[in-house]
C-alpha cells in the first residue's frame, strides 16, 4: 500500500483567497444596488461593462502570457466592480473599458499579477481616467439620482464638496450626485459590517482613515465639527476607506503599521482638499500611501520571541 507523504501541517483553515474575494464582492453589492437604484439602468451597464472587460482582460493576458488562468479567483471581477463603482453613471463605454484594461493589464499584470501590484489597480485606473478625461470624471459628469430630483439625467449638479447643498441625512443615505458607488454611506457601512463579520478585514484602516479625515479637517482645514463631518461623508472617503485602502496587497500588515498608513491617508486627503487645486484627495491619498506600504512594512520593527534582550542592548 502506498501512502501520500507531505510536510506538516496536514490541515488548513477553510478560508481561501477565492472565498475572501467573494466576500469583498458580496460586500460591494449593497453599494452597487443603491447605485443602480439611484442612477438607473445606465449605472448597471457601466458596472457590467467594467466587470466584463476586467475579467476578459485578465483571461486574455494570462492566455497570451502562458500563465495559469486565475480568473476564477474573483480578483479581476472585484477590481472591475470597484472601478465601475468609482465612475459616474454617465461614463462613456469606451472610457469604462480603457479603465478596466488599464487596471488589470498595466497596474496588475505588468507588475507580476495578483499580489505583486504596488498600487490598487482600480484606484490607479481611476487616477488615469481622471487625468485623461476630467470632463467625464468630475462634477460636470455627475447627475442627481433619478428619483430624487425631477430633473433626471441631463441635469448636472455640483458635488457637495464644492457647493454644500445636501443635508447630512441626504449625504448619509446617498441622495446626492456622485460616482455610482460612493454616494450611499449607509450601503457602504452595510458592506463594511459584512467584511468585519466575515473577518475579511480589520476595523483599523477604515475607522482610522475616516477618523483622521474628520480630525484633520478640524485641525488643518479649520472647519466647524459639522462641516468636518460633512467633509468626511463627502466624496469617496468612506468608499475608499472600506473598499480601496483596505486592499491587502497594497496596505501594510501589522496593526501599528495599518494605523499609521490610514492616518497618513487622512492627512493627505485633507491637505489636498485644503491646499490643492484639485478636489481628488481620496484617490491620491490612497495611491501615495500604497507606494509607501512596502517601506512601512519593512521599517516598523516587530518584537520577535527571544530577541527582546538583544534589542535593549543594541
Amino acid at each position: 500500500m502506498s501512502l501520500r507523504i507531505s510536510t506538516a501541517p496536514h490541515m488548513h483553515n477553510p478560508l481561501t483567497t477565492q472565498r475572501l474575494m467573494q466576500y469583498v464582492f458580496i460586500a460591494l453589492l449593497p453599494t452597487a444596488a443603491w447605485g443602480v437604484y439611484a442612477f438607473g439602468l445606465k449605472a448597471l451597464l457601466v458596472l457590467i461593462l467594467s466587470m466584463a472587460s476586467a475579467v476578459l482582460a485578465e483571461y486574455l493576458w494570462q492566455l497570451i502570457a502562458k500563465q495559469p488562468v486565475r480568473i476564477k479567483d474573483f480578483s479581476a471581477l472585484v477590481t472591475g466592480l470597484i472601478l465601475g463603482l468609482n465612475l459616474p453613471a454617465t461614463a462613456p463605454w469606451w472610457m469604462v473599458v480603457v479603465g478596466s484594461v488599464f487596471a488589470v493589464i498595466v497596474v496588475k499584470q505588468l507588475f507580476g499579477g495578483l499580489g505583486d501590484n504596488f498600487l490598487n489597480p482600480a484606484m490607479a485606473a481611476r487616477a488615469v481616467l481622471l487625468a485623461s478625461w476630467p470632463v467625464h470624471m468630475t462634477s460636470s459628469a455627475f447627475v442627481s439620482p433619478t428619483f430624487f430630483k425631477a430633473g433626471v439625467d441631463a441635469v448636472s449638479a455640483a458635488t457637495p464638496l464644492s457647493a454644500k447643498s445636501a443635508t447630512l441625512m441626504e449625504l448619509f443615505l446617498g441622495q446626492i450626485p456622485g460616482t455610482i458607488g460612493e454616494v450611499s454611506k449607509a450601503a457602504i457601512l452595510l458592506g463594511f459590517l459584512f467584511l468585519l463579520i466575515t473577518g475579511t478585514i480589520s476595523w483599523r484602516i477604515p475607522v482610522v482613515m475616516t477618523g483622521s479625515v474628520f480630525l484633520f479637517s478640524l485641525l488643518i482645514g479649520g472647519m466647524t465639527p459639522e462641516a468636518a463631518l460633512m467633509a468626511t461623508l463627502s466624496g469617496g472617503v468612506l468608499f475608499g476607506a472600506v473598499f480601496m485602502a483596505t486592499d491587502y496587497v497594497t496596505s501594510p500588515i501589522t496593526p501599528l503599521a495599518q494605523v499609521f498608513y490610514a492616518c497618513m491617508i487622512g492627512l493627505i486627503i485633507v491637505l489636498i482638499r485644503t491646499f490643492g487645486s484639485y478636489p481628488e484627495g481620496v484617490t491620491y491619498g490612497i495611491l501615495l500611501m500604497n507606494i509607501a506600504t512596502p517601506l512601512i512594512d519593512r521599517f516598523l520593527p516587530r518584537k520577535i520571541y527571544g530577541h527582546q534582550k538583544e534589542a535593549k542592548k543594541a
Binding site: R4, S6, H10, M11, H12, N13, T17, L20, R70, D73, S75, G113, L114, G115, D116, Y248, V249, T250, S251, I253, T254, D297, R302, K303, I304, Y305, G306
Partner: peptide
C-alpha cells in the same frame, strides 16, 4: 483530505503574521 493543495499567489493579507507565535513575518 490528503490531496496536496496548489499554491496561489500571496495576497499580503497578513494572516500568517497574525498567527506566528514567534512574531516572524
Amino acid at each position: 483530505q490528503s490531496r496536496s493543495k496548489d499554491e496561489s499567489p500571496c495576497i499580503h493579507c497578513g494572516r500568517c503574521v497574525a498567527a506566528c507565535p514567534i512574531g516572524l513575518n
